[in-house]
């Protein structure tokens, strides 16, 4: 009887020890995702969509991202008419070799 109980304990212990490892791996994955860079880049693109110097700013963003943040970014915009209202469709692509991110938004 004691033997069976100790086997049961061993089995439960395996589950418990895995839980810690899984939690740690998940937390690391979350922290390693470059969310600050992506959010910051995204807000900067949205803010610059209607500026006159947009192309120059986009080149600033592209080159500085590549040389300083080691990330390839690309921004494409196109004009659309949605119910008599002109909107800009922006496509953002981000790739730093580990994380690949794509987003399409209407501004």
């Amino acid at each position: 009887m004691g033997f069976l109980i100790s086997i049961a304990l061993l089995f439960l212990m395996l589950i418990v020890s895995q839980a810690t490892l899984v939690g740690q791996t998940t937390a690391e994955g979350v922290l390693e995702f470059p969310k600050h860079e992506i959010r910051d880049f995204r807000s900067e693109v949205i803010r610059s969509v209607h500026l006159e110097t947009t192309n120059d700013i986009r080149e600033d963003l592209r080159l500085l991202s590549l040389k300083r943040n080691h990330a390839v970014v690309s921004v494409e915009t196109s004009e659309l008419w949605v119910e008599d209202r002109q909107v800009t469709m922006v496509m953002i692509r981000y790739n730093n070799g580990v994380t690949v991110y794509e987003e399409t938004l209407l501004v």
């Binding site: 006159e52 110097t53 120059d56 963003l61 500085l64 943040n69």
Partner: peptide, 8 residues
């Protein structure tokens, strides 16, 4: 540069 620009 005489224009608005983005710096890091």
């Amino acid at each position: 540069t005489g224009r608005s620009q983005a710096v890091l």
